[in-house]
C-alpha cells in the first residue's frame, strides 16, 4: 500500500520503525470503519458493493456478499426504476390530452366555481344520432379519462337515468341548461329519485333555455362572438361534418 515509505525506512532505526507502525495503525482503523468497499484491483472486476452478514451477539463479521447496484444492468448500463408510482394517472393524462386537446371538457367538470355541479340541468348531445338528452345531474364520478355524469329526467312520466362518459368521442357536447340556485349539500343527489324530491321532466327548462338562446343568437351577435372567444369554439360548428365538425362542443352557460 504505502511501499515507498516502507522502502525508505532504515531497518536499524527502532524509533522510526515504531512510528511507521503507528501510522499503519491509523490506516487500518480507517479501513475497518469504511462501510462498503469497492474493489480496487483490476478493471476486470465488475463494480459492486458488499453486504455484510454480522453476527448479532458477538458483532463479528460472519460473511459478506457482493451486491451489484440495483440501478445498473450488465456493466454500468443504467436500469432506471419506473418513474411515476401511479402510471394509471399518467395514462389518464395521456388520453385526456388526446381526446380533449382544448381542455373544455375537463374545465366543465373541474372543481371550480364556474364548472357544472351536481343539481344543475345538463343537456348532452350524442354523436350517434337521437335526441339530445337533458336531465338533472345526480352525480359526477371523477375518474380521469373515465369521468362520467349521471343525468335524470322523465320521459313519458317514466323516470330515466343515463350515465355519460364526458371524454367519450360519441358525446358531442354538454351544455348547462340551468344552474341550481343553491349549491347542493350532497355529492350524490340520490334522494331526487324519491317522489317527494323528484324534479319530474326538465323539458320545460330546456325549451325555455332554447328560446332564450335563440333570442340571444339573433339579437346579440356580439355576445355570441364573445362566447366563442371565451371557449375557443363556436356552437354553430356542431352540425357541420368533416374533421372540424367532429371537435368537441362544450358551451358553458350563456
Amino acid at each position: 500500500m504505502n511501499a515507498a515509505p516502507l522502502a525508505r525506512r532504515p531497518l536499524s532505526c527502532l524509533k522510526s520503525g515504531l512510528r511507521q507502525a503507528r501510522q499503519q495503525k491509523i490506516f487500518s482503523r480507517s479501513m475497518a470503519t469504511r462501510a462498503a468497499a469497492t474493489p480496487k484491483t483490476p478493471s476486470q472486476v465488475p463494480d459492486h458493493n458488499f453486504y455484510r452478514l454480522v453476527d448479532k451477539k458477538s458483532k463479528t463479521l460472519r460473511s459478506a456478499f457482493a451486491i451489484y447496484p440495483p440501478t445498473q444492468a450488465a456493466a454500468g448500463i443504467p436500469l432506471t426504476p419506473v418513474k411515476t408510482t401511479n402510471p394509471v394517472a399518467a395514462l389518464h393524462d395521456l388520453q385526456i390530452k388526446k381526446l380533449d386537446p382544448t381542455g373544455a371538457r375537463t374545465a366543465l367538470f373541474a372543481r371550480t366555481r364556474e364548472a357544472a355541479k351536481v343539481g344543475d340541468i345538463l343537456l348532452v348531445t350524442h354523436r350517434r344520432g337521437g335526441e339530445p338528452f337533458a336531465g338533472v345531474c345526480l352525480s359526477i364520478r371523477r375518474a380521469g379519462i373515465d369521468t362520467a355524469v349521471l343525468l335524470r329526467n322523465h320521459l313519458g312520466k317514466v323516470g330515466v337515468e343515463m350515465w355519460f362518459k364526458i371524454y367519450n368521442r360519441n358525446v358531442a357536447g354538454i351544455e348547462i341548461v340551468k344552474r341550481r340556485l343553491k349549491r347542493a349539500r350532497r355529492a350524490r343527489l340520490t334522494y331526487m329519485r324519491k317522489p317527494k324530491h323528484d324534479m319530474g321532466s326538465v323539458a320545460e327548462y330546456v325549451s325555455a333555455w332554447r328560446k332564450s338562446r335563440r333570442v340571444f343568437q339573433t339579437k346579440g351577435r356580439r355576445g355570441r362572438r364573445l362566447l366563442r372567444g371565451r371557449m375557443g369554439r363556436a356552437g354553430g360548428r356542431r352540425n357541420k361534418g368533416g374533421e372540424r365538425g367532429r371537435e368537441v362542443v362544450v358551451v358553458v352557460g350563456k
Binding site: R34, A37, L61, S63
Partner: peptide, 17 residues
C-alpha cells in the same frame, strides 16, 4: 474467500480512500 474465512481481508483490501 468465504470458505477460507478470508472475506474480511477482501473487504478491507479493496478499500479506496
Amino acid at each position: 474467500a468465504r470458505q477460507e474465512k478470508r472475506i474480511e481481508e477482501i473487504l478491507t483490501g479493496g478499500w479506496e480512500p
